[in-house]
Structures are given as structure tokens and as C-alpha cells.
Amino acid sequence: MLSVKQNEPLEFTEEMLGKFAEIVTRYPEGRQKSALLPILHEVQANYGWLSVPAMDRVAAYLQLEAIEVYEVATFYTMYFLQPQGKYALEVCRTGPCCLVGAERIMKHIEERLGVKEGEVTSDGLFSWRGVECLAACGYGPVLQIGPEYTFYENLTEAGVDKLIDELKEKASANGQSPIANG
């Protein structure tokens, strides 16, 4: 995963720019602003979050004012405006999941990771937060992990422990350093 400092300008890779160009072709001429949400997802998938320089760069690419990007990035909950853990666990906290134990699962994650909602573990590997209904109410409790948004359903405490252990192993096997905190 690429890293970014809060205030340093950055350049997107050729690969990212190629992807952006393909996205823009989906809309009529002059309507390239429609590409904003998909492109922000691409940027977040590459950097882990949306920094101001990254958003400014998107604005320049789409020929938008920077504010047009900020107002979108701040409206939609999927976009992270702060660095997250390499694995950002998002647990559904809405009614139907709570009927089958979502609150218990969130408490367990908080204890297991030792960080509060929205905080990042000291090794940079994990962060977590409650999110609103993920449209998986028949399989609750559920959590998702970006950028692929892999789903983990019918969660139990033991299942969460296993998942966290597996992610830790995966991270050390890859030998990747956690994303840098801006």
C-alpha cells in the first residue's frame, strides 16, 4: 500500500491514471464529475484513506474545484479522512444485527484490539468502527474489511479472534510495513 504525508503533494501512478481514464469514459462528454465517487474509491484503495493532497489531485484530474471533491468526501461515510489501520474492521451496528449480538461483537473487538472506536492499534495493523446497516441482516452480526469489502458473516467472539489472528499472520507473511500515519 502506498503511503502519503498529510501535506505533501503526490502523483498518481500510471496504473491508477489508466483506471481513472477508463472510468471517465462511462459518462457523457462534459459529465466527468460523475467519475468522482468511483475515483475516490480507487484512491482510497491505493492509499488507505483520502488525504487533502490526494483530493486536490483528483480535483485537478477531473477539472473540478477542490471544494467539490471535499464536499463529496465528507458526505459519504465510506471515505476515510484520517489514516486507518491496514485492516479497518467495520461492524454493522444497526437494529437487526443488534438483535443477534452486534453490540457484543463490537465490545469484544474493542477489548481484543485494545483501541477505542476510530483509533488505530500501535502496530498500525487494525482500526475498527461501527457502521450503519450493511444489507446483510439475515447473516448478522457482520463486518466488512476494505478495500475489497470482504464480508464476514454470522460472527462470534471466537470467529473474530480467528479473523484477527489470520490477518496478523497475513500481514507478517507479506512482510509489508503498515501504512504510514500522516
Binding site: R31, K33, S34, A35, L36, L37, L40, H41, L62, E68, V72, F75, Y76, T77, M78, Y79, V131, E132, C133
Partner: peptide, 18 residues
């Protein structure tokens, strides 16, 4: 981008326009 309101059809269109 993660917003319940975009299920409302005109909010969805706004969102689709970026």
C-alpha cells in the same frame, strides 16, 4: 459512497452526477 439517503431516487441521481 455509503449513504442511506442515496436510495431516494433524486439523491441517487445527484450522487451519480458526482
Amino acid at each position: 459512497g455509503g449513504a442511506y439517503i442515496c436510495g431516494e431516487e433524486t439523491a441517487l441521481l445527484e450522487s451519480l452526477e458526482g
